[in-house]
């Protein structure tokens, strides 16, 4: 069963020069507990897609379905992570991770909240940093904490908008592995917006390529790699083939026909 579905989604933003269409015929079908990576040219409307699934935005046309219900407003079963970790500087790492629980489960006892947060912080390797302020942590560590916060309330859906985009290459690979481990331990369905084709193949069960703006679903690639992936798998012929296919699709999306 598909946990997330978008059907013929059209959306435009109002600008002084008239409406600017960003999405034109976007179809997604994401099965429960799977991980969907979305790639596409810059500015093609990927972030708009995250806001639509999160219910922060209602599409002009078409439908967004989440968990058997049409999305009309934000819901507590969603977690979000952005490129900017947006940690609250006045809170410790632990208090930052707990934040969603204060909204979603106001009655939950303090100890239970702390235990849950500490469990996640342990999973991403931040044990011992729970009482630090965000400003005392490196960029990669801040993003780890941000990931913990986005899933602390056990959301059904985790929506990530280029969460690793601002990190250096090696830190990014570390985070991919962290993400893979979190996936194994936590029951969420993932939507990952990214610019990084290797990231999309390493983390995704399917990779959706969007066309240039206004974006429609141009291509869907099913990632046929085993679930227990290591970074080495990216250097196998199968992965190479998939990356090549994606590269071609991106080129088509960018309307560039010249050979690479």
């Amino acid at each position: 069963m598909n946990l997330i579905e978008t059907k013929g989604v059209h959306h435009a933003y109002e600008t002084p020069m008239g409406p600017l269409p960003v999405l034109a015929g976007l179809d997604l079908a994401i099965p429960e507990s799977s991980f969907c990576a979305v790639v596409g040219p810059s500015g093609c409307g990927k972030s708009t897609l995250t806001r639509l699934i999160a219910g922060l935005l209602i599409p002009d046309e078409g439908e967004v379905w989440l968990d058997g219900a049409q999305v009309k407003s934000p819901r507590k079963t969603v977690g979000m992570a952005f490129q900017n970790p947006v940690l609250l500087e006045w809170r410790t790492i632990l208090e930052n991770v707990i934040l969603p629980l204060e909204i979603v489960a106001p009655g939950m006892p303090r100890k239970q909240r702390v235990d849950r947060a500490m469990e996640l912080l342990d999973m991403v390797g931040l044990t011992g940093f729970e009482n630090k302020r965000p400003s005392e942590l490196s960029g990669g560590m801040r993003q780890r904490a941000s990931l913990c916060r986005s899933i602390v309330h056990k959301p059904r859906v985790l929506i990530m908008d280029e969460p690793f985009g601002a990190l250096d290459a090696f830190t990014r690979e570390d985070l991919w592995q962290t993400m893979r481990d979190l996936r194994a331990a936590e029951p969420f369905t993932g939507v990952l917006i990214t610019h990084d084709l290797r990231e999309s193949v390493f983390l995704g069960d399917q990779v959706v390529v969007l066309s240039d703006r206004p974006a429609r679903t141009q291509h869907v690639l099913d990632v046929t790699l085993p679930a227990d992936r290591t970074l080495d798998i990216l250097y196998t012929p199968e992965a190479g083939e998939m990356l090549h296919e994606l590269r071609d699709q991106i080129r088509i999306a960018q309307n560039r026909n010249e050979a690479a």
Binding site: R51, L56, P74, V86
Partner: peptide, 18 residues
């Protein structure tokens, strides 16, 4: 205030006051 700050709570259905 950066919109992301608002979105992390708004996505959970938090009220404007919260």
């Amino acid at each position: 205030l950066e919109p992301e700050y608002r979105d992390i709570l708004r996505a959970l259905g938090a009220s404007r006051f919260t």
